[in-house]
Design a protein around this nucleic acid. Structure first.
Lengths: 115, 115
DNA sequence: TTGACATATGTCCATATCGGTATATGATTA
DNA sequence: TAATCATATACCGATATGGACATATGTCAA
């Protein structure tokens, strides 16, 4: 087998930075493709391809408006990502970060022993 | 260019389900490689390679213990994912979900008009 | 040292990616 | 109808993947 398709799920679709950018722009409201092309400074066919991936995993919806196609975000497929990542959240919370700092300092103190 | 390397960042590393599984197991505590091999039922070289990817993005730390290598989670690289996804959280919250339901019902009512 | 165990690395294959360029489809206007 | 604008698709290249397999490295015990 090879790497999972980008259209396999939101995890894969969103791993590409450009697609996150697109979602970030669309989170400000519905946009036609050419807006994204201008805002991201990317070739139009590439934008269309990224939009296709996002559509296939349900992260964007389309609506025809004249000769334009208006895209908007549908963030529900992001929920599994949120849910999975959330269970790790406490680990980097302030309390634990502080503990890390303390441990780091301890280690450095040990390292300094041989000076 | 091709797809970004799996070791490019946590987004890419974590897009692979098997690697999330590994992190999920390790979140229960430090484990040697063979534990993961047994628990996931995957070939050992494959586990080692996944662990390498996770290590390269800083999601796991290793510690030598005799002839074993103990792996544990370091979830800090997940924070960017959490932060990015979090900004979309409200969209799927109850309130909005309810709104979706209402709109869905409205649409179905319209569709039923021709009965 | 030899052997056994734990883990890592190397090679191979099939596959699909992102990006670029060219072209097709589709809707609107003259 | 023809020309134009907006978007989608097709094809190509370079690249790296996950998995299977074989083998190297490294640590300990007899």
């Amino acid at each position: 087998m090879a790497r999972a398709a980008t259209t396999a799920d939101a995890f894969n679709a969103v791993a590409e930075p450009r697609r996150r950018q697109i979602l970030d722009v669309l989170s400000g409201g519905e946009r036609p493709v050419n807006d994204l092309v201008a805002l991201l400074g990317v070739a139009q066919p590439l934008v269309s391809k990224h939009l296709r991936v996002l559509r296939e995993v349900g992260l964007v919806d389309v609506r025809g408006e004249g000769r334009q196609r208006m895209y908007c975000v549908n963030s529900r497929p992001l929920k599994p990502i949120h849910d999975w990542v959330k269970s790790y959240e406490q680990s980097w919370s302030e309390r634990f970060d502080h503990l890390d700092v303390v441990l780091e300092e301890l280690k450095e103190t040990e390292d300094d022993d041989d000076q």
